[in-house]
Simulated assay, not measured.
Amino acid sequence: MRIVAISAAVIFVLDQVSKYWIVHAMALDVRGVIDVFPPYLTFRMAWNYGINFGLFAGQQDLTRWVLVAVALGIVLFVLVWLRRDPPGVPGLIAGGVLIGGALGNVVDRLLYGAVADFLNMSCCGIDNPYAFNVADIAIFAGAAGLALFPGGGKPPGRQRKNRA
């Protein structure tokens, strides 16, 4: 479980530092948009009061606390799952990455009442109107990693025959 904790801590710190730097130090919350490498990478401020793509953003205060509870429930579920049926190292890292991302978005909801999204990427003539953050990437990558590297794949140990 040490691998899970380290993975979660690294992602959590990367997420929170990137959000602080982009939103506050670069004043994206005031500027709104910063073209970094258009159209491939743009920093575009978006406060997400709901879930993905702003779904369920209607009743902001209620939604905020429900989503905090859901995220903490998912973190607890993943921790119990990893403890009961530990996957290999890649699966443990994936679990930690998912947990770190989820906790990063929980902190945003507690501090700001919404998740700070700022990464916007477009390519190949497709204009992407949505923004995301490091935590969102981590949640997606962690979930994919857990699907690719699940636990329970250990072969049963060999039983010794009694030689009398």
Rank of each mutant, 00 (worst) to 15 (best):
R2G: 07
V4H: 00
A5F: 10
A5E: 07
I6Q: 07
S7C: 11
S7R: 05
S7E: 08
S7F: 06
A8W: 00
A8V: 00
I11K: 05
I11A: 04
F12H: 04
L14W: 13
L14T: 12
Q16H: 02
V17L: 13
V17G: 07
V17C: 11
K19V: 06
Y20R: 07
W21L: 13
I22L: 04
I22E: 07
V23F: 12
M26C: 00
A27I: 04
L28H: 10
D29I: 03
D29S: 10
V30Q: 15
G32Q: 01
G32W: 03
V33S: 09
I34M: 03
I34L: 03
I34Y: 01
F37N: 13
P38S: 06
P38L: 00
P39V: 10
P39H: 08
Y40N: 03
L41A: 11
L41G: 12
L41V: 14
T42H: 11
M45S: 08
W47Y: 15
W47H: 15
W47G: 15
N48F: 09
N48G: 10
N48M: 08
N48D: 07
Y49L: 02
G50D: 09
G50M: 06
I51A: 08
N52T: 12
F53V: 13
F53I: 13
G54N: 05
G54M: 06
G54S: 08
L55I: 12
F56M: 13
F56P: 11
F56L: 15
A57F: 01
A57Y: 02
Q59L: 10
Q59I: 08
Q60G: 12
Q60Y: 04
Q60F: 01
D61G: 05
D61K: 08
L62Y: 07
L62C: 04
L62G: 07
T63L: 01
